[in-house]
């Protein structure tokens, strides 16, 4: 409670900074939108296998929502934190009576928030332009709050995984490869970026449902699309909470050891 004012002040500060660099935000929009659009186009142009539960309209809705959810659950901490260890700028956070990693988390959150300024109009215009191609019969307003909740916890899961990887920056000079491996490639494959998880072969889908990646992207979209039973939603949240607990402890464990070897060079 004590830090609420500080969180708000830092959030405002980052918003002000980001509004200074508008060009960069437009580039980010292209980055976030382009890849799902290309994949969607690929899925729409190929013939679907027998037993694939997704029609063209499902793919269209899925990949229209991918940039939105991907952005909302994104965490940039993995890029910022190792740099702050290397150049010693972490020191300036450690010296304040404020959670030292919160600054990076808020910066990442502000980024995601600001991207909505571009992504929401983009999504709404797309829905308006291609409305005849969508099948809205599965959608239910009841699922909206549950999807939002899933996005929130999905973002928390991703933050904790990215954070744990970022914290290895106390030992590793460059965590990019580790992040690419654990949080990039596997996430794109098993999280539902390249192929919607619901269309995976049965056994792979079962594995994907047990891993954390699905919950950072595919799960909220599946809920919103009305594709999951109540039981499947409960099961999904349970798996997500399990990973949140695991990575909370992991991040804490790495932090406690890492901070003791932090050498505070530079800064």
């Amino acid at each position: 409670m004590l830090h609420l004012k500080a969180h708000a002040a830092i959030l405002k500060a980052y918003l002000k900074i980001m509004l200074t660099y508008r060009g960069m935000m437009i580039l980010h929009l292209f980055r976030v939108v382009l890849m799902p659009l290309v994949i969607a186009a690929a899925w729409l142009s190929i013939e679907k296998a027998d037993g694939n539960p997704y029609e063209n309209s499902d793919y269209l809705l899925y990949y229209l929502l991918v940039p939105l959810v991907m952005n909302l659950t994104n965490s940039r901490s993995v890029f910022r934190f190792p740099v702050s260890v290397r150049d010693g700028t972490l020191s300036r956070e450690l010296i304040k009576p404020y959670p030292p990693l919160m600054n990076i988390v808020i910066e990442s959150f502000t980024n995601n928030l600001q991207m909505l300024l571009y992504l929401v109009p983009f999504t709404l215009i797309s829905v308006f332009l291609f409305q005849s191609h969508f099948d809205f019969s599965f959608l239910s307003y009841k699922m909206v709050p549950i999807s939002i909740l899933a996005i929130f916890f999905g973002a928390l899961t991703r933050l904790l995984i990215s954070g744990s990887i970022a914290l290895t920056g106390f030992w590793l000079e460059d965590v990019t490869t580790l992040n690419l491996l654990l949080n990039g490639s596997i996430w794109a494959l098993l999280g539902g970026m390249i192929i919607p998880v619901a269309t995976f072969p049965e056994k792979i889908r079962q594995i994907a449902e047990l891993l954390p990646y699905r919950y950072m992207l595919s799960f909220p979209i599946e809920i919103f699309s009305g594709r999951l039973t109540t039981l499947a939603i409960y099961k999904g949240f349970a798996v997500m909470f399990f990973w949140i607990i695991i990575f909370s402890f992991t991040a804490r464990f790495i932090w406690k050891r890492g901070i003791k070897i932090y050498s505070a060079y530079g800064g």
């Binding site: 500080a6 500060a13 700028t89 800064g267």
Partner: peptide
């Protein structure tokens, strides 16, 4: 040095405000 507390992209008056919130 001169980059310990000041926010590089904001004017100092903004840093003072943030500092006020952090230190309550």
């Amino acid at each position: 040095g001169q980059k310990q507390n000041l926010w590089w992209d904001l004017p100092p008056i903004e840093t003072f405000e943030i500092h006020r919130s952090i230190y309550n």
